[in-house]
């Protein structure tokens, strides 16, 4: 079927199999490979992107369901490495990533959280990120980064 999705502000259209998963549309059609797949059961959150501004697991959404909607991936958060989004900056400052595989999804989950709750407590952050697995950091610095990003945004 024909699908047209706004990905990071650009219209991406293609004729794809009906069963195409959004994560594969993003990676293989839109050519944006930051968004990863880490499981088969919507458990790990590595594929998290924003769909119309809210976090979703793009492995559990059909491209067809996103037809006509807006998708934001980590590549679309900021113009480039020199002008990072506050959440990206905080992840770097707090060493909230190691191997980087969960990172795009984790960042998008954090962005979605802060959009809904601009000043979360540590407990709220821990609860809001429970759908995103990280095997490297023990989450300690991820939580600190989200707290730091929240306080930076609160101050700006």
């Amino acid at each position: 079927m024909k699908v047209a999705i706004s990905v990071n502000g650009s219209q991406v259209g293609a004729d794809v199999e009906d069963r195409t998963l959004l994560v594969h549309f993003i990676r293989d059609v839109a050519g944006l490979t930051a968004t990863n797949t880490g499981c088969d059961t919507s458990s790990c959150g590595a594929c998290t992107v924003l769909l119309d501004g809210r976090s979703v697991k793009s492995c559990t959404v059909l491209a067809a369901q996103a037809d006509g909607h807006e998708v934001t991936t980590v590549e679309g958060l900021a113009p480039g490495p020199d002008q990072m989004h506050p959440v990206q900056r905080a992840f770097r400052a707090e060493h909230a990533l190691q191997c980087g595989f969960c990172t795009p999804g984790m960042v998008m989950a954090a962005v979605s959280l802060l959009a809904e709750n601009p000043s979360p407590t540590e407990e709220e952050i821990r609860s809001a990120l429970e759908g995103n697995l990280c095997r490297c950091t023990g989450y300690h610095n991820i939580v600190r980064a989200v707290l730091a990003a929240a306080s930076e945004r609160g101050g700006s």
């Binding site: 990676r27 050519g31 490979t33 930051a34 968004t35 990863n36 797949t37 980590v74 590549e75 958060l77 900021a78 480039g80 490495p81 020199d82 990072m84 990206q88 992840f91 770097r92 400052a93 060493h95 990533l97 191997c99 980087g100 595989f101 990172t103 795009p104 960042v107």
Partner: peptide
């Protein structure tokens, strides 16, 4: 010291085997 690896991983994502477009 903050990591030199991070800006790329945070903005473009890593280039894991499945990401290779060589």
């Amino acid at each position: 010291v903050v990591r030199t690896e991070d800006p790329r991983l945070l903005t473009a994502g890593g280039s894991y085997v499945e990401d290779l477009r060589v």
